[in-house]
């Protein structure tokens, strides 16, 4: 198991946003968390990456407990996240955004190699390398945000609603890129409201409701599950 989350509970002040969530992420797979708006998906990701401190529970990554580590240490251990909302640095160029993503990496050669590999996933970023990130289209900014998360060379990549607000054709493209990333050996946690898209590419899935895991299993099985079909797929 690359990542083992046990009984993770996270509060915002008094509000409990995650309630004893346990999730297993096997190496080399795509695991998805689906759930409605406000279910706690982003909170889950930020608790793993150390941006928010969980109040209790354990997070074991590659055999090491990380729930007390600061976010910069967690990134250098090999967990990288692409936060919700396509957030890039609009005043920096594409290349500067990407280089900043390699902040935990030392060695110019390594950074150059990573840039090349990001450009091979996203050729459009290579074309736009000197443009200000703020001038990119929504889809391109999303790709830049994912590319930036890849720059640290993660073992585990966490994506928060990458499909949000993107045209279906761009979502298709994103799906194939996420598959490609997995095939190159990076484990992926995909957080999505777009359950249909997520269940199609994930190996395992967890359904989150008001901070709790209410269902989990193989993604292909959840795709057939009546309750999931009714509540999340609208079929």
């Amino acid at each position: 198991m690359l990542l083992e989350v046990r009984n993770l509970t996270t509060h915002y002040g008094r509000v409990k946003a995650l309630d004893r969530v346990s999730v297993d992420v096997p190496e080399g797979t795509i695991v998805t968390l689906i759930g409605a708006n406000g279910a706690g998906k982003s909170t889950f990701m930020m608790s793993i990456s150390g941006v928010i401190r969980p109040s209790s529970g354990t997070i074991v990554f590659a055999g090491q407990g990380i729930e007390h580590l600061p976010s910069d240490r967690i990134v250098s251990l090999g967990i990288s996240q692409c936060p919700e909302g396509r957030r890039v640095w609009p005043q920096m160029t594409v290349v500067e955004n990407l280089e900043t993503g390699a902040f935990s990496v030392s060695g110019k050669g390594v950074v150059q190699d990573r840039l090349e590999s990001v450009f091979s996933y996203f050729p459009i970023l290579k074309e736009r390398r000197q443009q200000l990130a703020g001038s990119l289209s929504g889809g391109e900014q999303q790709m830049l945000a994912i590319g930036r998360a890849l720059m640290s060379g993660p073992k585990l990549l966490m994506l928060d609603e990458p499909s949000l607000g993107l045209a279906p054709i761009i979502v298709e493209k994103l799906v194939s890129i996420i598959r490609e990333i997995k095939e190159h050996g990076t484990t992926v946690i995909l957080v999505e409201q777009n359950a249909f898209m997520a269940l199609q590419i994930a190996d395992t899935a967890y359904v989150l409701e008001t901070g709790r895991v209410v269902m989990s299993g193989k993604a292909s099985e959840l795709l057939q599950n009546d309750l999931v079909r009714k509540s999340y797929l609208g079929i």
């Binding site: 941006v51 976010s71 936060p83 005043q91 280089e99 900043t100 993503g101 902040f103």
Partner: peptide, 19 residues
Amino acid sequence: NALIAIRENEELARSIGIN
């Protein structure tokens, strides 16, 4: 670079591993 990243969006900077 780190300082500018923090100025523009501190939470984002932290999430990509900038202390």
